[in-house]
């Protein structure tokens, strides 16, 4: 960038550049490409490399000699799936699946309502949904820290009004608390995605089917679900993927007893800088997420998920 040139000359140069095809293409695609290459592709590639390298336990320097030790470490048990890594991974998938199903079940009625109602009701409901959505994730997770626990708001209220003598296990910190926390956190993604696809739905079609004698269940199964499938899949993806990698919610609501994969990776990096192990573990998560997306994209296109 030539500093001190008269503005007009600069401008003329830019205009000239913009009027060529390659110039304009370069200016528009270039910056983001640079960012993606330097901050997404290069780091992830390096992570793949590191997953095949070991780190000196004394100096923490990377030893550039290819090894499978990190991957062996992930399988180092009999049976092989009995390592902390796989236990944490299965648990994360399980929690993410339950969370996704819960979000889907809960969001559908509300999305349907939103799609069919306009005006004031719509505005108020959407405001009430969007507000938690825009509120810091951390704040929302924290609000559940107050709710759960043996002395938390739920249990102390139940005891206070005399419904129970002691704290109920279900409302202690643990897996149920984590599922609730994650559902609360990612529910709006599901709702908005479903709403968007239901909003495009032609409701006269449904009424026509009803008039022709189809039962409610039939209509939902044969018309509503297929037509909103992109929304269902997209929404599920938006809930499932971040739930698998969740860190804050299980950290706050698990009381140290629940170890999801994100926490394992974090403790390896922060606690012992075992970046080889952490990278190998991340590869598994990344590959399974890419797998899930590939499956999802057989039913929807990326345009369905946003953009154009």
């Amino acid at each position: 960038m030539a500093v001190g040139d008269p503005e007009e000359t600069n401008r003329a140069a830019v205009v000239r550049l913009l009027s060529t095809r390659y110039g304009s293409l370069g200016i528009t695609t270039g910056p983001a490409l640079l960012w993606i290459a330097a901050l997404l592709l290069a780091p992830l590639t390096f992570m793949v490399v590191v997953s095949f390298l070991e780190v000196s336990p004394i100096s923490y320097e990377i030893i550039y000699e290819p090894t499978l030790a990190n991957y062996e470490g992930l399988f180092d048990a009999t049976p092989w799936w009995d390592t902390p890594f796989f236990t944490a991974l299965w648990l994360s998938y399980g929690i993410a699946t339950v969370t996704t199903l819960l979000c889907l079940t809960l969001a559908f009625p509300l999305a349907y309502l939103l799609a069919r109602r306009g005006g004031r009701t719509f505005k108020i409901i959407i405001f009430l949904v969007l507000l938690p959505f825009f509120t810091m994730y951390l704040v929302r997770a924290y609000s559940w820290v107050l709710m759960f626990g043996p002395g938390g708001v739920i249990n102390s209220t139940l005891i206070g009004v005399g419904l129970t003598d002691g704290p109920i296990e279900l409302f202690n910190y643990g897996i149920p608390a984590i599922v609730v926390g994650l559902t609360h956190a990612y529910f709006p993604y599901m709702l908005l995605t479903l709403y968007a696809s239901l909003d495009g739905l032609d409701f006269s079609l449904i009424e026509a089917a009803r008039d022709l004698g189809a039962s409610r269940v039939d209509v939902v199964r044969d018309h509503v679900v297929p037509l909103t499938l992109p929304g269902i899949i997209g929404g599920s993806l938006f809930v499932f993927v971040p739930s698998v990698g969740a860190f804050i919610t299980p950290r706050f609501l698990g009381q140290g007893k629940v170890q999801m994969i994100g926490m394992l990776i974090e403790s390896r990096v922060v606690g012992t800088y075992s970046i080889g192990y952490a990278s190998a573990a991340s590869m598994f998560v990344l590959v399974s997420i890419i797998g899930a997306m590939v499956v999802a994209f057989r039913y929807v296109t990326i345009e369905d998920l946003g953009g154009g």
């Binding site: 370069g26 270039g30 490409l33 640079l34 290459a37 330097a38 290069a42």
Partner: peptide, 10 residues
């Protein structure tokens, strides 16, 4: 200056 170049990221 990002606009001009495609490489040199690192």
């Amino acid at each position: 200056c990002a606009g001009g170049s495609g490489g040199g990221g690192e």
